[in-house]
Design a protein around this nucleic acid. Structure first.
Lengths: 219, 219
DNA sequence: GGGATTTAGGTTGTGCACAACACGTCTGTA
DNA sequence: TACAGACGTGTTGTGCACAACCTAAATCCC
């Protein structure tokens, strides 16, 4: 087969398209306010508009894009007030992750935490906004995996991706090196908490950093 | 025009279809496990499958239905464990509604609260499961309107609709009259809290009732 | 010259025909 | 009878053509 022996299920393709597009939006490949073309994207992914529109529909329901008949598909922006309230909620949800169905800490989890510290140190050596965003995203998913409450995971993810691009857009306004250093500190603190099998502490650390991050963004 | 002078926007139609279908699912008009036909529904709403599928896509992303190629569209069921975790999260979110951006209590809000008490008393006079579900749904939306945090509203709504049909399905197992009495008591307590402009108390009351409701459902 | 109108181009929304797929039934064979 | 395979029926998924719509530039009229 032309796709390397892997026939792709419709659901799998939807997930793939959606994840790729979401990533591009949150990494600012598609800046807020810019327009996406269904036709162009469909051509890029080698499908017709129909399956692509299914992926766009999900992105629209998630609030990442907005379509207008006859005009186009526009990447949404978020005003400061809305972002503030979303951050508030994210902060509280982060705290809940430590109390609601935390997973049992395995050696593998601890190893992952230390990997993040290593990646953070490397990033601190040569700061790069895009790489920073990627590491942040990966670390978020790691944090989400520390609770078995699927509803909480899903909700946190939804809200994270809603604010991620705003965060990255603001990095230039702040000091990249400083932000990386703060983030590295969060990684180290988290790794220490996990080392002690204390997921509640890990959640509180995250909660504190979300709060401080929001303060820096709005301040 | 044939629709009474109101031409319907594509977005408005999507919202209408989605809300109607969601209502039917949560009111058990479409029981968990039953199959929906795109063709039949499209005919009922006087459209082609295309716009209908857009509404179904949203329902699927919300976890209310599940489609399988070549098989059909099936209304999902929820196992007890998942419901328990979703209720946990709903409980915590209800508490947050009292702390995160509560609205200012106006006379209109207080009046609405008293209307709910009146409706609850009427229901207690002649208990009916379906009417109970409707009142519960309306009261939920009222509760959601007490915070200005849109992310919190959206999230709570999402989770509410995810568990609503499980709740209604369990009513026969419990005592309908007893459940109505408990709910009426929640309405009265909430009205009193709102009377005193104390939305934090209203939120705590709701939180307590969600907790107790979950205990009755699983117990 | 200024403003209203027409027109051209590009975008998303809709309808329809067909492909891909799952499942139950029927049929032929041992 | 038991079993394997073909077949019919019904479902969702996909591709395509066209409708509905918005925008901006060109054109016409005063």
């Amino acid at each position: 087969m032309s796709d390397g022996g892997q026939t792709e299920d419709a659901r799998a393709r939807l997930t793939r398209l959606h994840d790729i597009l979401r990533s591009r939006i949150c990494l600012l490949d598609y800046a807020p306010g810019s327009r996406l073309s269904e036709e162009t994207l469909a051509a890029e992914f080698g499908t017709s508009r129909t399956p692509l529109r299914r992926a766009l529909a999900r992105l629209e329901d998630e609030g990442l894009i907005q379509t207008q008949h006859g005009v186009g598909t526009i990447v949404t922006d978020v005003d400061l007030a809305e972002m503030g309230r979303t951050y508030e909620l994210r902060r509280e949800l982060a705290g809940l992750a430590g109390r609601l169905s935390p997973v049992e800490v395995t050696p593998d989890i601890a190893a992952q935490a230390h990997d993040f510290v290593a990646r953070g140190r490397e990033l601190a050596g040569s700061p790069d906004a895009r790489e920073f965003a990627r590491l942040n995203m990966d670390f978020f998913h790691f944090g989400a995996s520390l609770t078995e409450n699927e509803a909480l995971r899903e909700t946190s993810e939804r809200l994270y991706y809603r604010t991620a691009r705003i965060w990255l857009k603001s990095i230039p306004r702040l000091n990249l090196g400083e932000e990386v250093r703060i983030f590295l500190s969060e990684l180290e603190q988290t790794a220490a908490a996990i080392e002690g099998h204390d997921l509640l502490a890990a959640a509180l650390i995250r909660q504190a950093h979300i709060s401080m991050c929001e303060a820096r963004l709005t301040g």
